[in-house]
Design a protein around this nucleic acid. Structure first.
Ligand SMILES: [Mn+2]
Ligand SMILES: [Mn+2]
Ligand SMILES: [Zn+2]
Ligand SMILES: [Zn+2]
Lengths: 183, 183
DNA sequence: GTTTAGATGATAATTACTATCATTCGATTC
DNA sequence: GAATCGAATGATAGTAATTATCATCTAAAC
């Protein structure tokens, strides 16, 4: 199979549609439509680069020279919470190490960040067969499956954590998941 | 298809084999076999948790109370460099945001961290059909395809960066990839 | 226009590394 | 087994990327 990058045209069309509906979606979600929020979502949607917060900051600063970097961080986080944006990986805040260097994939609990190995021959085969995508030379791949672990799925309304850095840390479940040891 | 977690038995067997060959592999790679390195790889291979550096530190400290956290960070990094360990994601050092909230996947350049969208219907279909893996309830997924972008693939021996946090930053290529703007 | 809950800006604090450097030690050589 | 020496380690300072705090401001409702 021949995999393709998403074209800039498709991306831009999608972005334009999202942007048009943004204010309405904010109001529906009970969020104020501020110039800062508009500028930030516009910057994010204008880029195919999956930018970092500091990059968004630099972009937005041209139109809003007084905006605070903290506002950019906060707003991007808020956008993720209301489903207007996402992070490319949910494991961006600290390195998780793996002694298994064979190709494999991971299930990650979105609440406690417990990670377990999965093997998915179909996906691995598909990707092994694919040596390039667009003009990128493929080296390998890793699938991150978002899930709820048994502990977090069972009566999950405790701690509707916002998944901010550290916001879920310190709970019994969390610390168990962070010991790194077998039961 | 019924996806399964990798069983603890299989994991432990693999870990035992890796550990047995570790000293030899170090020597072959020109690395000294120190008690700290042995303790760290043993801790990593004893866990199915994909632990963070601080978790490894706590585990190792029981046997080596004088070990430094810096040594743990350094050693884990070294282990990754010689292929004895890996990180679960290569995007762990800062958040990358995405305004495209439809399910899709990403190609990531391992050198400059440029990220582009990819759609892979086969993978998405496979995962959509799968509601649980072991006792984890699946919510979604995201495939991270490691690759070389056109810019980095063309005469790539410049900066054989060790992929440490920031070690590749500041290059022309890198800063271009971090502007988040279209050409 | 007034009210007010939520948003912002300035800035301090925190987390997770990363760099520096004096000291120690594993491996090789004798 | 002792000498040698460059790599490895520990202690600690420094940095980057958030995250928290709080006084001030403002969008939205009335
Ligand atoms: Mn793994
Ligand atoms: Mn994307
Ligand atoms: Zn969980
Ligand atoms: Zn690149």
């Amino acid at each position: 199979m021949e995999l393709q990058l998403v074209s800039e045209g498709r991306r831009a069309g999608y972005a334009a549609r999202r942007l048009a509906e943004f204010a309405e979606r904010c109001r529906r979600g009970g969020l104020a439509v501020t110039p800062q929020r508009l500028a930030i979502i516009r910057a994010l949607l204008s880029s195919a680069e999956h930018p970092r917060a500091d990059v968004i900051y630099e972009m937005v600063r041209r139109e809003h020279p007084h905006i605070s970097l903290a506002t950019v961080h906060r707003t991007l986080d808020t956008l993720c919470e209301i489903g207007e944006a996402r992070k490319v990986t949910m494991l961006h805040d600290s390195a998780r190490y793996d002694g298994n260097v064979t190709p494999h994939h991971h299930v990650i609990c979105v609440k406690c960040r417990r990670i377990r190995d999965v093997e998915i021959p179909d996906v691995s085969a598909l990707l092994d067969a694919c040596k390039e995508i667009g003009d990128f030379k493929v080296l390998g791949s890793s699938l991150e499956i978002h899930a709820l672990c048994p502990a977090c799925a069972g009566r999950g309304r405790t701690r509707r954590a916002t998944q901010r850095r550290g916001s879920t840390r310190g709970s019994a479940e969390e610390s168990r998941s962070r010991t790194g040891e077998e039961a």
